[in-house]
Computed example of a mutant assay.
Amino acid sequence: MVTIRDVANEAGVSVATVSRLMNNSGYVSEQSKQKILSAIKKLDYIPNEIARSLNKQSMKILGLLVPDITNPYFPSLIKGVEQCALQHGYMLLLGNTEGQETIGENYLNFFKQYKVAGLIKIDGTHLDTPEDVPTVSLDRMNDQDQFAVISDDFYGGELIGQTILETNYGSILIMTGPMDIQVSKMRLQGIQSVFDQYKIDYQIYSTPSFQTEFADQVAKEIIRDYPNIDTVIAPNDIYALALIQAWNQLGSIIPEDVQIIGYDGIVFGAYAHPSLTTIEQPAYKIGYQGTELLLAIINQQIDPEMSKIIQVKPRLLKRNSLREVK
Rank of each mutant, 00 (worst) to 15 (best):
T212K: 04
E213H: 11
E213L: 07
E213V: 11
F214A: 10
F214S: 09
F214E: 04
Q217I: 07
V218M: 02
V218K: 02
A219T: 07
A219N: 01
E221P: 12
E221W: 09
E221Y: 12
E221A: 15
I223H: 06
I223L: 06
I223R: 01
I223M: 04
R224P: 00
R224M: 02
D225I: 03
D225T: 08
D225A: 13
Y226S: 12
P227L: 09
P227A: 11
N228G: 13
N228W: 04
D230K: 09
D230L: 06
T231W: 03
T231M: 10
T231C: 13
V232L: 14
I233E: 05
I233A: 10
I233N: 10
I233F: 11
A234Y: 01
A234I: 00
A234T: 00
A234E: 05
A234M: 01
P235R: 02
P235I: 05
P235L: 03
N236R: 03
D237F: 04
D237K: 01
D237H: 08
I238K: 10
I238Q: 14
I238P: 00
Y239K: 10
Y239M: 15
Y239W: 11
A240L: 05
A240F: 02
A240N: 06
A240E: 05
L241Q: 14
L241W: 04
L241K: 06
A242M: 06
A242Q: 03
L243A: 13
L243E: 12
L243Q: 11
I244C: 08
I244F: 03
Q245F: 00
Q245E: 08
Q245W: 01
A246H: 13
A246K: 14
A246S: 14
N248S: 14
L250E: 12
L250Y: 05
L250S: 15
G251Y: 11
S252N: 11
I253A: 10
I254D: 01
E256H: 04
E256F: 00
D257H: 02
Q259S: 08
I260L: 12
I260E: 06
I261C: 08
I261P: 12
G262K: 00
G262R: 02
G262C: 09
Y263H: 09
Y263S: 12
D264T: 05
D264A: 13
D264P: 02
G265C: 05
G265Y: 00
F268E: 15
G269K: 01
G269C: 08
G269F: 01
A270S: 15
A270L: 11
Y271N: 15
Y271I: 07
Y271Q: 13
P274M: 04
P274E: 00
L276D: 03
